[in-house]
């Protein structure tokens, strides 16, 4: 994966497969602590203790098309390469939380990449799902919550051209405000 955003997109696919109704994504770049933290948390069906033990292995997957799954192992490898840590917490019936912490200044750290675009894609192509997005960098912070949008929009859907444009622009604005010009 060339970007952290691609890892996020990939990990979120697991939440979708796990029938989550809410996915919370946090991206926090903290220059003082020299840490880049990514958390993807869902309220999907979760994993059993046994599956959780094996989930970091490439030879463990819930997919039925093949016997290998590389999403989690690759994200873990990226974290490891960047002097970071990688954890997964999960409870059957409660959900799953993936926490990756990378060294922000590490030379091999992939850039965050097209984050706003990635979130836009996730929201528009999974309209029955709710997303809570938090972007943080030093003192800047921005939150995007599709549940709040739904309250305002009522029966108007996300794929209405004006609404989707609003979503895209507001995500891009937040991304620029929080991470703009900071080499994240």
């Amino acid at each position: 994966m060339r970007e952290i955003s691609e890892h996020i997109l990939d990990i979120t696919q697991n939440s979708i497969t796990a029938d989550a109704s809410l996915v919370q994504i946090l991206v926090n770049a903290d220059a003082d602590a020299d840490e880049f933290e990514i958390i993807v948390e869902d309220n999907g069906r979760g994993m059993s203790e046994e599956f959780l033990q094996n989930v970091l292995s490439p030879f463990s997957t819930s997919r039925t098309t093949r016997k290998v799954g590389l999403g989690i192992p690759m994200f873990k490898e990226t974290s490891r390469t960047c002097d970071g840590s990688f954890e997964i917490e999960s409870k059957p019936g409660k959900g799953t939380k993936v926490i990756a912490r990378l060294k922000l200044s590490h030379i091999d750290r992939p850039p965050l990449g097209a984050f706003a675009d990635t979130i836009y894609i996730l929201i528009l192509s999974n309209q029955e799902l709710n997303f809570y997005i938090e972007m943080k960098c030093d003192s800047e912070c921005s939150v995007f919550d599709t549940r709040k949008m739904r309250i305002v929009l009522g029966e108007v859907e996300f794929d209405n051209p004006d609404v989707s444009l609003w979503i895209r622009q507001s995500l891009e604005e937040s991304e620029r405000k929080v991470f703009g010009g900071k080499n994240i």
Binding site: V152, L153, V156, S170, E173
Partner: peptide, 16 residues
């Protein structure tokens, strides 16, 4: 900054 008020206006337009 994009605001929820804008979204409200979009909603009204869409319903029409």
């Amino acid at each position: 900054m994009k605001s929820l008020a804008e979204l409200e206006a979009i909603r009204e337009k869409a319903l029409k």
